[in-house]
Design a binder for these strands. Structure first.
Lengths: 69, 69
DNA sequence: ATTGTATTACTGCTAAAACGGTAATATATG
DNA sequence: CATATATTACCGTTTTAGCAGTAATACAAT
């Protein structure tokens, strides 16, 4: 697994956004953005997806069975 | 985005597991496994991770900024 | 067709995530 | 240093995901 929290944080910084701005853009609460950056894994998948979309981050799943997207 | 539900389902089948068995192995409820396979995005990230671990599926995040893992 | 198994669907209850507010700490910036 | 902004942390409240139980439907297999 990758450090999702750090990934989100670095992308947010690169985009020049504060946690609050990112939260608003993603349509979620600031606390949740904070939690995601802290790698709290009990957040909703939908909330993570919302953040990733704003930051233009894609998700890929890989396994020995999948050589595709 | 990929069809995570279908991905989980196909991997589960390949592993010869029922939803209930997968749920038990992942330490979550059968309802949640069902929800994941139905692409319900309001499930907890931790529960998705638990299922992915059992099925040996890895997660990757990609963006124009990340050429690495 | 019938029996068995798996999946899908629905229902309350409970636990906890999400949230805004606020406060304290940290991190700039002048 | 001082001021401003951002981050981290904590706290109630509200919302809701998670869950087991159950029932109904689908799907095999005999």
């Amino acid at each position: 697994m990758v450090d999702l929290g750090l990934l989100v944080k670095s992308h947010r910084k690169k985009a020049g956004l504060t946690q609050l701005q990112l939260a608003n853009l993603a349509g979620i609460g600031k606390t949740t953005v904070f939690d995601i950056e802290k790698n709290k894994e009990t957040v909703r998948w939908s909330n993570i997806l919302a953040v990733l979309q704003v930051l233009n981050i894609e998700v890929e799943f890989k396994s020995p069975l999948t050589e595709n997207v």
